[in-house]
Lab assay of single mutants.
Amino acid sequence: HNGKLCKLKGIAPLQLGKCNITGWLLGNPECDSLLPARSWSYIVETPNSENGACYPGDLIDYEELREQLSSVSSLERFEIFPKESSWPNHTFNGVTVSCSHRGKSSFYRNLLWLTKKGDSYPKLTNSYVNNKGKEVLVLWGVHHPSSSDEQQSLYSNGNAYVSVASSNYNRRFTPEIAARPKVRDQHGRMNYYWTLLEPGDTIIFEATGNLIAPWYAFALSRGFESGIITSNASMHECNTKCQTPQGAINSNLPFQNIHPVTIGECPKYVRSTKLRMVTGLRNIPSIQYRGLFGAIAGFIEGGWTGMIDGWYGYHHQNEQGSGYAADQKSTQNAINGITNKVNSVIEKMNTQFTAVGKEFNNLEKRMENLNKKVDDGFLDIWTYNAELLVLLENERTLDFHDLNVKNLYEKVKSQLKNNAKEIGNGCFEFYHKCDNECMESVRNGTYDYPKYSEESKLNREKIDGVKLESMGVYQILAIYSTVASSLVLLVSLGAISFWMCSNGSLQCRICI
C-alpha cells in the first residue's frame, strides 16, 4: 500500500475532517465546509473527530445509520420544511452556546429548535410527501429539559409530546424532565432520530412541544462500492481501485494482509504473511546465498510486491572476458508455465471484495464479540484455502523447474562428451581453451567436438587428477538461474548478450 488516501476510480472521497457522521448530518456549525458535499467514492472519518452533536445527546440507531450510509455515493440536500413558512405559530430561531460559531450562539444547520411564540405553543402538524424518486433521509430531535421551569419557559406545556409517523415508522416521544450533570454547559439533553422515507411515502410530524424540527433532508443515491473508513492518512493526487484505512492498494494479487476493511475492488484479506509461490528452483544453499535460486511470486499485497520470474541462460568467462545470454527457448517455456500457473491461482482465488467494518453500540458488546468470532472463522478458512492451494502448486513448480534445468544440462553434456569433466555440482571442467566463438557454439548447439578432442585428450593426460582450476583450465557451469522482474525479464530476452569482463582471468566458464 502507499499510505495515502486516493480517488477511487477517479472519484474523490468525502473527508469529514474534524467532524464525524453525526456532526455532518445534523449540521454542526463547525462542519459548515461539508454542506456543499454532493457525491463521493467513500467517506473518511478520523479516529478522534471532535465535532459531532454540539448540544449533548445521542443519535439513536447511529450504527444502523452508518451502515445505511456505507452504500450511499451521492445525496441532494434540500429544504424539507421551509423555515419561514412551515411554522407560522412558533418561534424557530432557537440557539445555544453549546453550538457556538465564530463566538456567537448558533444551532444545527439542518434542524430548527421550535419554541413557544408569545406565551403559547399551539399543537403543530406538518407533513412531507417524498417526490424525489429515491429514498429521503429525514432527521429530527426531541429536547429533554433539566427542570419543569425550563419546560414551561420554552414550550408552555408541561405534558408535551412529539409524534412522527410514516408508512414504515411510527413513534411517540415524551420529554424526560430530570436533573443531569452539566455537559457542554447544558443540564438538558437532546436525542436525535432518523428514518428513511421511501419514494411516494408521507411523513407526518405532530407536537405540542420539545420538537427539534427537520429543516433540511437528504435524497440518497446508492453506490455499492462506497463505504466509510476511519483513517488518519492524508489525501493525495492519486487514483486506485482499492482503498484501505492504511493506504491505497493497486494490485491484481488475490490476497492482502494490510487491513480487513477495504473499499472498492480489493484482494481478499488473509492473516498469512508467507503466502508465496515459487518460480525458481529448489533451494541450493551456495546459490541461494548469491540470490540466484528460489525466486518467488508473492500473492499477498503487503507481504511480497508483485511476481518475480526466474529465467535460464548461459554465463561464460574466458580470456576475452565474461558474458550472459538467455536461453530463449527454455526461458519462454518457463515463463509460459509460470504465467499459466499464476493465472490459474488468481482465477481460482481472485474475487474482488469490498469489506466494511460493522458498528455496534456499547450495549451490543456481546453481539460485536460474536460477530468478530464469526469473521475470524471465515478469515481462517480463507487463509487455509489460500495456503493449501499455493503449497500444492509450489511442489509442481519445483518439479517443473528441475526438468527444465536438467534438459539444459543434458544438452551441454551431450555436446562436450569427454572434452570436459562433470564435477558433480552442476559444473563441467573443460580440457581445452574455449574462446567466445567456442562458447557461442555450446550455447547454440553447434559445438565442434572433433575440433577440440585432441587438445582435450592431451590435457587429460597431463592433469592426472590435479585440480583443474589450479592448472588454468576452464570450467563450464551447467545450471544457472538469475532473477529478474517481469519487465526486466522481457528486456533481457530482447538482448543477445551483455558482457562482464574479468581482467586477466584465465578461467573459461559457460553457465546455464
Rank of each mutant, 00 (worst) to 15 (best):
residue 358 K to G: 15
residue 461 E to M: 07
residue 352 Q to A: 13
residue 414 S to E: 12
residue 279 T to F: 03
residue 439 M to Q: 15
residue 263 I to Q: 07
residue 449 Y to F: 12
residue 488 V to G: 03
residue 413 K to G: 10
residue 415 Q to S: 15
residue 359 E to G: 04
residue 369 N to G: 13
residue 438 C to K: 07
residue 349 M to C: 03
residue 238 C to N: 03
residue 479 I to A: 12
residue 421 K to F: 10
residue 429 E to L: 09
residue 354 T to S: 14
residue 346 I to V: 15
residue 497 S to Y: 00
residue 302 G to A: 08
residue 240 T to N: 06
residue 297 A to L: 06
residue 284 I to A: 13
residue 469 E to L: 15
residue 487 L to A: 14
residue 428 F to L: 15
residue 483 V to Y: 00
residue 459 N to M: 10
residue 271 R to P: 05
residue 296 I to S: 02
residue 492 S to L: 14
residue 360 F to C: 07
residue 339 T to S: 13
residue 312 Y to W: 09
residue 339 T to Q: 14
residue 324 Y to Q: 05
residue 486 S to L: 14
residue 504 G to F: 03
residue 331 T to D: 05
residue 237 E to C: 00
residue 259 H to Q: 02
residue 301 E to Q: 07
residue 464 D to T: 09
residue 412 V to R: 05
residue 462 K to Q: 11
residue 342 V to W: 01
residue 246 Q to C: 09
residue 457 K to F: 12
residue 443 R to N: 05
residue 352 Q to P: 04
residue 402 D to H: 07
residue 274 K to D: 01
residue 347 E to I: 10
residue 437 E to G: 10
residue 235 M to C: 08
residue 398 L to C: 02
residue 458 L to P: 14
residue 432 H to T: 12
residue 325 A to Q: 01
residue 330 S to P: 01
residue 459 N to E: 07
residue 419 N to I: 06
residue 352 Q to W: 00
residue 273 T to I: 12
residue 393 E to W: 10
residue 395 E to K: 07
residue 471 M to L: 12
residue 249 I to L: 14
residue 289 Y to I: 09
residue 308 I to P: 00
residue 411 K to T: 10
residue 315 H to T: 01
residue 495 A to P: 00
residue 372 K to T: 10
residue 260 P to M: 00
residue 465 G to K: 04
residue 477 L to D: 01
residue 490 L to H: 00
residue 453 S to E: 11
residue 365 K to L: 14
residue 330 S to K: 14
residue 507 Q to R: 10
residue 398 L to Q: 06
residue 502 S to K: 03
residue 463 I to P: 01
residue 290 R to F: 00
residue 412 V to G: 04
residue 311 W to G: 06
residue 500 M to I: 14
residue 453 S to Q: 12
residue 388 L to K: 06
residue 371 N to I: 15
residue 350 N to I: 05
residue 274 K to H: 10
residue 264 G to P: 04
residue 493 L to W: 14
residue 317 Q to K: 11
residue 411 K to W: 09
residue 266 C to F: 08
residue 501 C to Y: 04
residue 495 A to M: 02
residue 291 G to T: 05
residue 300 I to Y: 03
residue 295 A to F: 05
residue 337 G to V: 10
residue 441 S to Y: 03
residue 345 V to D: 09
residue 346 I to H: 02
residue 416 L to E: 03
residue 248 A to V: 08
residue 362 N to I: 13
residue 251 S to C: 04
residue 334 A to F: 02
residue 477 L to I: 11
residue 278 V to L: 03
residue 367 M to L: 15
residue 236 H to W: 02
residue 282 R to G: 06
residue 360 F to R: 04
residue 500 M to P: 05
residue 267 P to R: 01
residue 455 E to N: 07
residue 378 F to L: 15
residue 359 E to I: 14
residue 283 N to S: 03
residue 334 A to C: 09
residue 403 L to T: 14
residue 405 V to G: 00
residue 296 I to K: 03
residue 401 H to W: 06
residue 410 E to Q: 14
residue 411 K to F: 02
residue 334 A to N: 08
residue 235 M to T: 12
residue 425 N to K: 09
residue 429 E to Y: 02
residue 503 N to M: 14
residue 471 M to H: 11
residue 264 G to E: 10
residue 459 N to D: 07
residue 447 Y to N: 08
residue 382 W to E: 10
residue 386 A to N: 15
residue 373 K to S: 04
residue 307 M to Q: 00
residue 316 H to C: 15
residue 493 L to P: 07
residue 440 E to S: 13
residue 279 T to V: 13
residue 232 N to W: 10
residue 401 H to K: 10
residue 338 I to Q: 03
residue 243 Q to W: 10
residue 257 N to P: 07
residue 275 L to G: 04
residue 246 Q to M: 15
residue 494 G to L: 00
residue 256 Q to N: 10
residue 273 T to R: 14
residue 341 K to N: 05
residue 389 L to W: 03
residue 340 N to Q: 12
residue 456 S to Y: 03
residue 237 E to D: 14
residue 399 D to I: 14
residue 449 Y to E: 11
residue 449 Y to Q: 13
residue 462 K to G: 14
residue 491 V to H: 01
residue 373 K to L: 06
residue 501 C to W: 11
residue 425 N to C: 07
residue 453 S to R: 09
residue 396 R to N: 06
residue 327 D to A: 06
residue 415 Q to N: 13
residue 403 L to R: 12
residue 251 S to Q: 08
residue 296 I to R: 00
residue 298 G to D: 04
residue 399 D to S: 15
residue 441 S to A: 14
residue 493 L to S: 05
residue 261 V to T: 09
residue 385 N to L: 12
residue 368 E to M: 07
residue 419 N to W: 05
residue 308 I to F: 09
residue 247 G to I: 06
residue 404 N to P: 01
residue 326 A to L: 08
residue 390 V to S: 01
residue 483 V to N: 14
residue 233 A to N: 08
residue 367 M to C: 06
residue 357 G to D: 13
residue 381 I to N: 05
residue 316 H to L: 00
residue 287 I to L: 13
residue 415 Q to K: 00
residue 463 I to G: 08
residue 446 T to A: 09
residue 433 K to H: 09
residue 248 A to T: 03
residue 267 P to T: 01
residue 296 I to N: 01
residue 264 G to R: 05
residue 272 S to N: 04
residue 437 E to A: 14
residue 248 A to M: 02
residue 290 R to Q: 03
residue 281 L to V: 15
residue 261 V to G: 01
residue 268 K to P: 00
residue 295 A to R: 02
residue 483 V to R: 02
residue 359 E to N: 05
residue 430 F to C: 03
residue 397 T to C: 09
residue 457 K to E: 13
residue 376 D to E: 12
residue 318 N to I: 05
residue 438 C to W: 12
residue 423 I to L: 14
residue 285 P to G: 02
residue 377 G to D: 10
residue 387 E to G: 03
residue 366 R to H: 09
residue 332 Q to C: 07
residue 306 G to K: 09
residue 289 Y to G: 00
residue 301 E to S: 08
residue 491 V to C: 04
residue 499 W to P: 00
residue 507 Q to S: 12
residue 458 L to E: 08
residue 475 Q to S: 12
residue 471 M to A: 12
residue 330 S to G: 01
residue 339 T to N: 13
residue 255 F to N: 01
residue 400 F to W: 14
residue 406 K to W: 06
residue 456 S to R: 07
residue 289 Y to E: 02
residue 422 E to D: 12
residue 472 G to W: 00
residue 297 A to R: 03
residue 317 Q to I: 14
residue 379 L to C: 08
residue 375 D to A: 08
residue 344 S to V: 11
residue 235 M to D: 00
residue 390 V to H: 03
residue 418 N to I: 03
residue 486 S to C: 07
residue 486 S to P: 02
residue 375 D to N: 14
residue 448 D to A: 12
residue 319 E to T: 05
residue 323 G to Y: 11
residue 406 K to C: 06
residue 343 N to Q: 10
residue 387 E to K: 07
residue 366 R to A: 08
